[in-house]
Design a protein around this nucleic acid. Structure first.
Length: 466
RNA sequence: GGAACCAUCGCCAAGUUGGUAAGGCCGCAGCCUGCAAAGCUGCUAUUCGCCGGUUCGAGUCCGGCUGGUUCCUCCA
């Protein structure tokens, strides 16, 4: 297995800190709003990583947190009058439900910041004891970046010009401009506060990840976890700060490998609320099937930026359709065992820093070959069984192609419409039998107008929703 | 202003250690079909933003330029 380490900026061989075991921590969402396509991209990237590692025989422990205490959540509490728990619970459930529709496997550990306060406070105290952090007069606790000689090595940020920083950091009793908050003392009565030895308040964003990692992983004394992942925008300052805190608190490095996924863009620009171009997952899922979205979002390598565009999505769907059309030809039947070469080719592709494009090309090739052989020998049972096994392997490794094919092509068609279609097909069959092609073609046109494509096969006429 | 990443066929998109351009969509021709659709077969970049350099050989390495995106502030 080779992975691109965004800190080393190179593809490196993956060697877990413990034999055949992998610990992964991915920065999850701050739950104050619905998930957008960018959240989906990140979740998808690390889902692929986890599936690939499992297929390669590793025991994977995936941890993805929920940031459920944060300024934006508090703002939402104030705006809506709802409780913090109501809001965060709502968005956590939505997130999990939507990710499930994308075929994303649940993380093994899903910690919430509010449920990790003991670990967070403990780490802050440790940092204060070591003089790596300090409390200022209002109760805020800051991390002293000057105490970490390695600060900046994650994001490769050298000494910044003071000008820039002073623009951002006004007043404050910070020792260094780059110091960041570990703990924010509560200011007003409306604040949601936790009691801590240093002050009443709440944790800063960076500390929770470090604390949760220490809480849930034991590491090996050199690294706490194998892989730390997240969106490319988290590299700085979030991951830089995490690494610094953990280094100072534990005396060892946080993660052996750092992986970052690229952005989803709309019209060539990063999707963001401030630009008003964010695309919520829930809206995409209203129009497109989750599996199609999964396939589409995975058609570009996880590190590259992804330009979302409906035309490309439809192209991706056509590609997935072909896989399901093949599956139709295979059923009913039972899978035997996956073709060894096919399996090896897919694993090899994915083991190369998750080269999904090569994997998809192998699948296309397998599909075309199977179709070709079935054209010449439609009753090749052994081939059918093996191909079915191949598709099962694809589903396990990449998370698509697992549906029953007829239902795949009938997504969004209700029983009523289904009955209408069947009726029209009956009429068309009789017309065809009577060689009344004018009528049969007219019926076909009607179906096309309804968004239904039909195809005559030796086994009868089948239909698909376009 | 500082830093990073990217630039491959009409569109999407692979291409670690330099060795002579995967795959998909679209298009064209053919097989199949009552006709279609689906499926299959064949064809479709002497060329990888531009200019130099290193090399027997570069999309791949080096330098410069142009264009795009991102980060430096909350962000997947």
């Amino acid at each position: 297995m080779q992975l691109y380490d965004s800190v080393k900026k190179a593809k490196v061989p993956f060697e877990p800190i413990k034999e055949k075991e992998v610990s992964i921590y991915v920065c999850g969402p701050t739950v104050y709003d619905d998930a957008h396509l960018g959240h989906a991209r990140s979740a998808l990237a690390f889902d692929m990583l986890s599936r690939t590692l499992k297929a390669l025989g590793y025991r994977v422990t995936l941890c993805k947190n929920f940031t459920d205490i944060d300024d934006k959540i508090i703002k939402k509490v104030e705006e809506t009058g709802k409780s913090l728990e109501e809001i965060t619970q709502y968005y956590i459930e939505r997130y999990l439900e939507e990710m499930h529709r994308l075929g994303i496997q649940r993380a093994d550990i899903e910690p919430k910041a509010t449920e990790s306060m003991d670990a967070i406070e403990h780490m802050i105290e440790k940092l204060i004891d070591k003089d790596c952090a300090y409390v200022v007069s209002n109760g805020d606790v800051y991390f002293d970046t000057s105490k970490d000689p390695h600060y900046g090595e994650i994001s490769h940020k050298v000494h910044d010009d003071e000008e820039n920083l002073s623009r951002v950091e006004h007043n404050s009793e910070k020792r260094n401009p780059k110091d960041f908050a570990l703990w924010k003392a509560c200011k007003g009565g409306e604040d949601i506060c936790f009691d801590a030895p240093f002050s009443k308040g709440r944790p800063g964003w960076h500390i929770e990840c470090s604390a949760m990692i220490e809480k849930h992983f034991e590491g090996n004394g050199t690294y706490s976890i194998d892989i730390h992942g997240g969106g490319a925008d988290l590299l700085f300052p979030h991951h830089e700060n995490e690494a610094a805190q953990s280094r100072c608190a534990t005396g060892h490095e946080l993660a052996k490998y750092w992986m970052h996924n690229g952005f989803v863009q709309i019209d060539g620009e990063k999707m963001s609320k401030s630009l008003g171009n964010s695309f919520f997952l829930k809206d995409a899922l209203k129009v497109y099937d989750g599996e199609v979205l999964r396939y589409y979002l995975n058609s570009v390598h996880y590190r590259n930026d992804f330009n979302f565009n409906e035309e490309d999505l439809l192209t991706a769907k056509k590609r997935l359709d072909k896989l399901y059309r093949l599956k139709k030809r295979l059923l009913p039947g039972k899978a035997s065992s996956v073709n060894k070469d096919f399996k090896a080719a897919l694993l090899e592709a994915m083991a190369d820093d998750l080269n999904i494009s090569v994997a998809l090309a192998h699948i296309d090739e397998m599909v075309a070959n199977a179709n070709e052989q079935l054209d010449t020998n439609p009753k090749d049972k052994a081939l059918k069984k093996e191909t079915l096994a191949n598709l099962e392997f694809v589903d396990t490794l990449l998370g698509f192609g697992g549906k029953e094919p007829y239902s795949y092509f009938q997504i969004g068609v209700d029983e009523d419409l289904k009955a209408q279609i069947e009726e029209k097909l009956q009429k068309r069959a009789s017309a065809k039998a009577a060689k009344d092609f004018a009528t049969s073609d007219a019926i076909r046109d009607e179906l096309t107008a309804m968004g239904i494509a039909i195809m005559d096969t030796p086994e009868g006429t089948v239909w698909e929703k376009i």
